[in-house]
Design a protein around this nucleic acid. Structure first.
Lengths: 138, 138
DNA sequence: GTTCCTGCAAAAGCTTTGCAGAAGA
DNA sequence: TCTTCTGCAAAGCTTTTGCAGGAAC
């Protein structure tokens, strides 16, 4: 179930996080671009709109959003971190050829797990890797 | 099904990879230490035995082993890469408190997936995060 | 007016690269 | 002998830190 932008900003307010111009723009960007962007992509795309923007602010903001559970950090790629608006029950597929990341539907909670009694599970991530249909054709 | 050390070295030979002293020791280390070590941990632990060892060699070796599909790369941690030689059906749980990584049994192939028709899936990784029982007590 | 946030510069940390000498086959 | 590997030093990247000025409330 996806949240509206208003619901997202309300959650920030309720957590005592100030609604600075930069934060709102970064949150809006992640909410509208479901492409699992990197810090560099967010920076490049927002620079036209906010010429004084710095990467430090993007790192700061994303870390704040992760602590508030509005954004999720993807570690599917070794070199660079990707970010995703936090919504449930989907996995990520990375094409090893074109490097794109695709979403897919999956019911994570239907999995039978052994060996995690007394573990507090907060996040579940499913990463698949391989070749996407477009790259398979070539 | 895990391989014996002899099977592992045979696969290296068959791939035209030379059995240098360093490579064999690193492979042996990963095979005996199922603790998902980092490059730094391997380096520190092997330095007594091979005083001239360098991290470059460990990076080189691990990349070779990954290409030969003898070792798997774990990206559960943002800052540092972990390595695993265990290819049996299992997931990884990272405790956000003590940072330890635990294995757990899971039947990945029983998952019902929608949206990955025509995708060639080569690797499936399941990462859970939270707090381990020992850290929960505190 | 206070407190928190931004953004610059610098630092830190992991990983890769270039290359000369050494070792494997 | 020929080819490949090792390991040092340096470079390349992403991410974090310290801090002064500025913005939010």
């Amino acid at each position: 179930m996806n949240k509206t932008f208003e619901e997202l900003t309300n959650e920030l307010k309720n957590n005592g996080i100030r609604l600075s111009h930069q934060r709102l723009k970064i949150l809006e960007y992640i909410n509208n671009h479901r492409t699992h962007p990197t810090v560099d992509e967010i920076y490049t795309d927002l620079l036209d709109e906010i010429p004084t923007l710095s990467k430090t602010t993007i790192y700061n903001t994303l870390n704040t959003l992760i602590e508030t559970d509005l954004v999720k950090l993807l570690t599917i790629e070794e070199n660079e971190t990707h970010y995703d608006i936090n919504f449930e029950n989907h996995g990520h597929f990375k094409c090893e050829s074109c490097k794109k990341i695709f979403d897919f539907d999956i019911d994570i909670d239907s999995l039978e797990i052994k060996g995690l009694d007394d573990f507090k599970i907060k996040h579940k991530d499913i990463y698949f890797k391989g070749v996407c249909p477009e790259c398979s054709k070539k």
